[in-house]
Simulated assay, not measured.
Amino acid sequence: MQAPSLDWSIGGYETIAALLLPAAETVVAAAGLKRGDRVVDIGCGTGNAALLAARQGAEVIGVDPALRLIEVAAERAAREGVQASFRQGEAASLPIPDASMDVAISVFGIIFAGDAAAAIAEIDRVLTAPARIVLSAWLPRGAVFEMNAAAAAAVRAAVGAPRPRHSIGTTATS
């Protein structure tokens, strides 16, 4: 069973997205993109990584569950004269044809997938072989992890959402 997803379009995510730009730069650089690479940015938010990849000549599709953030990303692309497309969708059911992407990237997006196994299966489904996957995730320890865990627990309590059964980017301990 998939946990209810949070509505990332509520509030001013653009402020957080601006702070995450250095992480997007690192992910895109690590992907080693070549002109013409077909890239899917999973959990693209306002388009940081998608736009960086498109500026390098990649054919980019950004996917995010938050329609408002997809609209922000598309507006940014148009304003900056960057060719990229954006689609509303979840990591566990990407609106992308089979074997149509060369590279999957995600900047702190895929780690919030409600169904980690389905998200991984979807990445596998949309990628060609060989392919590259570059993801960023919070480490499952330390101050940033503790802060995010506390914030996530507070949001889940406020909206009545259960704790996800699985989470990408965390480890189970006994």
Rank of each mutant, 00 (worst) to 15 (best):
L21E: 12
T170P: 03
V27W: 03
I10Y: 06
R38N: 04
A66W: 03
R156W: 12
V159W: 01
F86N: 06
F86W: 07
A158N: 06
S100C: 06
A143Q: 13
S100L: 12
E59Q: 15
S5N: 08
D124E: 15
Q2D: 06
A23M: 10
I133Q: 12
A143T: 13
A29C: 04
L94G: 04
E80T: 12
L51R: 06
A74D: 13
G11N: 09
A118H: 00
E146P: 02
L127V: 07
I111P: 01
R68Y: 05
G12F: 06
A131G: 15
G47F: 05
V40W: 01
S5H: 11
M101G: 03
L51V: 09
A113L: 01
G36S: 03
G36M: 02
F112L: 06
P97T: 14
K34I: 01
P140L: 06
L67K: 14
A31G: 00
I10F: 07
Q83F: 12
F108N: 08
R165H: 14
G89V: 07
A117C: 09
A154P: 00
L135H: 03
M147I: 08
R76E: 11
P22E: 04
V63R: 10
A129W: 12
I16T: 11
S136W: 05
D37V: 04
A30H: 04
E90I: 07
D115N: 01
A172F: 11
I10K: 11
A172G: 15
A119V: 02
V40R: 01
I111W: 07
V155I: 15
T171L: 14
A66M: 08
D41I: 04
A131P: 10
N48L: 02
A73S: 10
V144Y: 08
T171G: 13
M147T: 08
R163P: 05
G11A: 07
G109W: 01
S85P: 07
W138P: 00
G142F: 12
A30K: 11
L69R: 07
G47R: 02
W138Q: 03
G32P: 02
D64A: 07
L21M: 10
E90K: 15
E122W: 05
A66G: 15
A53L: 02
S167A: 14
A149N: 06
M147K: 11
A161I: 08
E59C: 13
S174T: 12
I16L: 14
T170Y: 03
A157T: 13
E14D: 14
L135P: 00
Q56A: 14
I42L: 00
D41W: 01
R35E: 12
V134E: 03
I111A: 09
G12M: 11
P65Y: 05
A158R: 13
R132F: 09
V27R: 02
I10R: 08
L139K: 10
A74E: 11
P95Y: 14
E146W: 01
A18L: 06
G43E: 00
A118D: 00
S136Q: 08
V28H: 05
A137D: 06
H166V: 03
V144D: 10
I123H: 00
A158Q: 08
R87Y: 11
A119S: 04
A24C: 11
E75I: 02
F86S: 09
L139V: 07
A116H: 00
I70C: 15
G45M: 04
V72H: 10
A49L: 01
A131T: 09
I111T: 13
V27Y: 04
M1T: 08
V134K: 02
V28M: 08
R76Q: 14
C44H: 02
A116N: 00
I61A: 13
V28F: 08
